[in-house]
Amino acid sequence: MGSHRRRPPSGFDRGVNAAGITGIAVTVMSVAAAALGAVPAAAAPKDDTRAEVDRLYTQAEKATEAFNKADERAGTLRKEVSTTQDRIARQQERINTMRDALGSLAGAQYRAGGLDPSLALLFSDNPAEYLDKAAALDRINAHQAGELKDLQVAMRDLAQVREEATAELAELEKSTKAVARHKRTVEQKLAKARILLNSLPSAERAAYDRASRSGRSDLPELGGVTPASGRAAAALAAARSALGRPYVWGANGPGGFDCSGLMQWSYRQAGVGLPRTSQEQRYAGRQVPLSQAQPGDLVTYRSDASHVAMYAGNGQVIHAPYPGAPVRYDPVGMMPISSVTRV
């Protein structure tokens, strides 16, 4: 698969490489110390700031995936409710038509029914024909009455389904709004964190920004490893074509992406339909060990699979990292790996 040498952390769970406030020399020493896991005491406040920003990035991404799932379910339910309403309308139209037919038949029977049936038979010029018509009429009445009853039962059932679906849709829409409110709260926290970062001296802010944007935009060497299939190769090519496009909440292309949106869009270009969320994408194929990862495989992160990327070869993944960072390459070990899935 190529080298998986751990690079300096990047992404949502990166450690802090910010410097103290004593100048560029201290900044460089702090970065080196942070890479070795030993952070000077003077850098602790900056470490706390960065840890808070990373925590907020993680919260935001989890909220985005929860929003994507709720939105997908709501969309599916909207279609089901629409289909059910169409079925009810068609059934109602059929019932109305049958009622009209039965009303016409009843009127005809009333107009022809002035005589007792036995007298009508007695005075009939053709008793056999009369009996045949009467029997046929009885069969028609029984058939139409039964059909009407069945349709009425079906209409009640469909009305119940519509009511249940509408209630569920309202609940899902309420849930989606709650997730959206949570996202707005996180965005506000991110904005506050950015204000805090902007209050740092320019040299320290530049050092933080470099560490926060340590991903690559150039094409990494694949290390001689080929994609697992033609569709994986096509999906990887699509993901590469999205390099530099922005991270956008809840977006699945082509102008912007969140993490799972990029995976879904890339595989769609290869003719493969993936689920919407990173948690569902984790089970969209066969799981393989990281040591056997091939370009095009999906790599999910954290125990809850709340982030997903695509393996690109040579220890690199391509992904939509977080707000403010465009689609880019990062080391595959940028955060704890949950699974590797071959689609």
Score class of each variant (00 low, 15 high):
Pro326Gln: 06
Thr83Gln: 14
Asp258Ile: 03
Ala34Gln: 01
Ala134Ile: 06
Arg216Ile: 12
Gly324Asn: 08
Gln92Phe: 09
Lys183Asn: 04
Ala44Glu: 12
Phe123Met: 09
Glu147Ile: 08
Ser30Gln: 08
Val39Ile: 10
Thr22Met: 09
Phe257Asn: 03
Arg99Lys: 14
Ile337Gln: 07
Pro323Leu: 09
Arg50Gly: 04
Val317Cys: 02
Ile140Tyr: 06
Leu115Met: 13
Gln287Asn: 10
Trp249Ile: 01
Gln91Lys: 14
His319Asp: 05
Asp209Tyr: 13
Ala228Ile: 02
Gln264Asp: 04
Tyr110Phe: 15
Gly230Asn: 00
Gln279Glu: 04
Asp132Trp: 04
Pro254Ala: 12
Glu163Ser: 12
Thr185Cys: 00
Val288Ser: 01
Glu173His: 09
Lys79Phe: 13
Ile21Cys: 01
Gly324Asp: 09
Arg156Trp: 06
Glu173Gly: 05
Leu169Gln: 07
Ala320Asn: 02
Asp47Gln: 15
Lys62His: 14
Arg240Lys: 06
Ser217Val: 06
Pro275Cys: 13
Asp116Arg: 11
Gly107Asp: 13
Ala154Ile: 12
Leu262Ile: 08
Ala211Phe: 10
Val186Glu: 12
Val340Gly: 02
Gly244Lys: 05
Glu187Thr: 07
Pro45Cys: 09
Thr226Met: 02
Ala19Ser: 13
Thr49Ser: 09
Leu197Met: 06
Asn314Asp: 15
Glu280Asp: 11
Glu221Val: 06
Gln292Pro: 03
Thr64Glu: 15
